[in-house]
């Protein structure tokens, strides 16, 4: 049977080329190990991260000598003791954690209806509008957006100008915790919507019609059918928003007016302001641990299967 090679899928040809390359490098052949070679780039990447983490771990065990600005030759847990005893660190960690939780909840509450309307609307114009409104801020970086809020919410900003028209004295809308959370929610919303939309698309409209014909009101359909079925999407979006918020730097730095540091800001200060890379490394590791714990808690509560990672979903 004659088949031109061009009728093969591109991927097959890529795989053939890779196999040929492996065979050339390793003529005896890796046999069953050849497929694992495909993992090499990923392993190198993860390996680099692990090496970096080991360096950070090493730094975190060394203290800064402020008479020579060199790090100690020996290992000590002093930085960890300091991290757990300094009230400022506790304040910052608690603020980041609470902020991340609040931002996640609010973002999901806003993203869900947005994604739902975007996925379900029969109006092509509305869907396009929602998509553009979603992607436009994506092209504008986080920092630029934060500066945008400075202009909009400032004492002489648009909001206060409008309030001034109705006789309200300028309000301090910026440089406080709510301003940081507001900026974060606005920043996270597109991420959440983009992660929720496929989850909602995967729920057939027929299922919602079915729930209706079985007697469920619109609200009951949402709470009993759509929300539970969108759970993997909600968990995924929640995890992304939670970890991105927890580790955010720019929003607290710009919208917090210097009074609302998150953990990342505290780490920056240690690395670049007080030159104490050891303590900075300690805080960085604590942040990683905190993030991992949060993810762990989410998995423990909702189960890893909620992300459809257990492979049993058909």
């Amino acid at each position: 049977m004659q088949r031109s090679p061009s009728s093969y899928p591109l991927m097959w040809r890529v795989m053939d080329a890779l196999e040929a390359a492996f065979a050339a490098i390793w003529p005896k052949g890796g046999g069953k190990y050849t497929p694992y070679l495909m993992l090499t780039p990923a392993i190198v990447l993860v390996g680099t991260l692990v090496v970096g983490l080991l360096y950070i771990g090493d730094s975190s065990l060394r203290t800064l000598d402020k008479s020579t600005f060199q790090f100690s030759e020996f290992w000590t847990l002093e930085n960890y003791v300091r991290a757990f005893s300094e009230p400022f660190i506790f304040t910052v960690v608690w603020r980041s954690l609470m902020g991340a939780v609040i931002v996640t909840i609010v973002t999901l509450m806003l993203a869900f209806p947005y994604a739902y309307v975007m996925v379900r609307t029969p109006n092509a114009f509305l869907r396009k509008f929602l998509l553009i409104a979603l992607f436009l801020p994506f092209f504008i970086g986080q920092v630029v957006r934060a500066y945008g809020w400075l202009i909009i919410l400032g004492n002489q900003g648009i909001v206060n100008d409008v309030l001034g028209l109705v006789g309200v004295e300028p309000l301090r809308l910026l440089f406080n915790y709510p301003a940081v959370l507001f900026g974060l929610v606005q920043y996270m919303l597109p991420f959440a919507v983009l992660m929720l939309a496929p989850a909602l698309t995967a729920i057939p409209e027929e299922i919602e019609a079915a729930a209706g014909s079985l007697g469920a009101s619109w609200v009951e359909t949402m709470t009993h059918v759509v929300l539970p079925m969108a759970k993997p999407g909600l968990i995924g979006a929640g995890l992304v928003v939670l970890t991105l918020s927890l580790t955010d730097f720019a929003m607290p730095a710009i919208l917090g007016g210097g009074t609302q540091d998150f953990i990342a800001n505290a780490i920056y200060d240690q690395f670049f302001r007080t030159s104490d890379q050891g303590f900075g490394a300690t805080l960085a590791l604590l942040l990683i641990a905190l993030g991992s714990m949060l993810v762990g808690v989410v998995f423990a509560v909702f189960g890893a299967g909620t992300l459809a990672l257990d492979g049993s979903q058909k």
């Binding site: 057939p204 027929e206 299922i207 019609a209 079915a210 079985l214 059918v225």
Partner: peptide
């Protein structure tokens, strides 16, 4: 009561 084409089971 309705039985849907794709069943629409939960």
């Amino acid at each position: 009561g309705m039985v849907f084409q794709k069943l629409a089971l939960f």
